[in-house]
């Protein structure tokens, strides 16, 4: 019965042994009973080995001073937590993310459900923002005919959002 492994997280004797094969490479994790990483069978979220893999410092950009311009998250924060700071981080860290995703998943492009309604709302909102910017420009450049035209479009667009 006795297995000599130590917990991958602390140094206590490991009693839980997990194996997983990702891309034909075998990864093993040994954990002790009390380790915070231990999660029982009944835990809805269970345990994900990938959490360990991505904490490997070599897997995301080294010393770089890149920061997510939206939330201020850095690669060092990612190393520490294995989580991103905000949705925009996926853009900010795109270069280091892609190889990680292709290691973890079947592919690197989404092939599943799309939130149609949320996207439609978003594109309408983007259109409004664009109209408002165009309108401001037209007024600034004293192109009042153009400004009147845009104002009509803007009113129409706002109206259609209200109705939706």
């Amino acid at each position: 019965m006795a297995k000599p492994e130590q917990c991958s997280n602390c140094n206590k004797p490991a009693t839980i042994h997990l194996t997983q094969i990702i891309d034909n490479k075998i990864h093993k994790v040994d954990l002790c009973e009390d380790c915070p990483y231990k999660q029982s069978v009944t835990d809805p979220e269970g345990f994900s080995l990938a959490d360990f893999l991505i904490k490997d410092p070599s897997s995301i950009g080294g010393e770089s001073s890149v920061k997510c311009e939206v939330c201020g998250f850095t690669p060092a924060d990612f190393k520490k937590t294995g989580r991103f700071g905000c949705p925009h981080c996926y853009e900010s860290f795109k270069a280091t993310l892609e190889p990680m995703l292709s290691n973890m998943h079947k592919g690197t492009v989404h092939r599943g459900k799309v939130p149609e309604k949320a996207l439609a709302r978003l594109s309408k909102k983007r259109r409004l923002d664009q109209f408002e910017e165009d309108l401001r420009e037209a007024i600034e450049s004293e192109n009042f005919e153009e400004a009147a035209r845009i104002r009509d479009l803007l009113a129409e667009a706002k109206d259609s959002i209200k109705k939706a």
């Binding site: 991103f84 973890m104 690197t108």
Partner: peptide, 9 residues
């Protein structure tokens, strides 16, 4: 990338 989640897994 589809639905964006805190953890890329």
């Amino acid at each position: 990338y589809g639905y964006l989640t805190a953890c890329p897994t």
